[in-house]
């Protein structure tokens, strides 16, 4: 049986403080890269917004750069507490990965336009829902409304249909990941 974890929203994770192995604050969490080929969509990298660095992927730069976002493997996280996430390397020696071919939760999903397969606009993505199991983070789906901003009638019908088909919890205004046909450059296409 699949272990049930804690649900977390992307909005709550963004800006989480990052510390290196020596406990120095190096920046904050900016984004999450997700592996869609895994059995369950899994967070594989964190987009770390570093206050500065003079080294990217082991290469020394000519001069330090400020406000840089690097993709660092999720496995680099050595621990977490109320302060934030702790990384196992010492700044600036972080392993860095390319964003090529990766889907980033904030860049590609959050606040993006959702359309149906005919291209009709539905609503924008209000949040991305993740499930935390141990230290692993899985993508659950996208949220489409907040309490004070009710979903449109079309969206309510769509959600009801999706809940029925995919068995998601009805109390969440959630579009499960299985119902997403594809993620285009500027929009998320929902398979109804």
């Amino acid at each position: 049986m699949e272990e049930e974890g804690e649900l977390v929203e992307l909005d709550d994770l963004i800006k989480t403080k990052l510390y290196d192995a020596q406990g120095s604050r190096v920046g904050h969490l900016h984004d999450l890269a997700i592996d869609l080929e895994a059995e369950r969509p899994l967070v594989t990298h964190l987009g770390a917004h570093l206050e500065w660095t003079d080294q990217v992927g082991g290469i020394e730069l000519v001069r330090p750069v400020e406000d840089i976002v690097l993709l660092i493997p999720w496995s680099e996280i050595s621990g977490e507490d109320d302060e934030g996430l702790h990384l196992s390397s010492i700044h600036p020696n972080f392993p860095a990965a390319s964003t090529k071919g990766k889907m980033l939760a904030r860049r590609d999903l959050l606040n993006k336009q959702m359309v149906d397969e005919e291209g009709s606009r539905l609503q924008r993505v209000d949040n991305v829902l993740l499930e935390k199991v141990g230290r692993a983070l899985y993508l659950v789906g996208i949220e489409v409304s907040m309490g004070w901003l009710p979903a449109s009638a079309t969206m309510e019908k769509l959600l009801a249909r999706l809940h029925k088909r995919h068995g998601a919890k009805p109390e969440l205004n959630l579009i499960p990941w299985e119902a997403i046909a594809r993620v285009d450059e500027d929009q998320v296409v929902i398979a109804v």
């Binding site: 336009q113 959702m114 009709s120 606009r121 539905l122 609503q123 924008r124 901003l149 449109s152």
Partner: peptide, 9 residues
């Protein structure tokens, strides 16, 4: 407003 919230317009 429709654009901000992604509604058809």
């Amino acid at each position: 407003v429709c654009e901000a919230f992604g509604w058809e317009s």
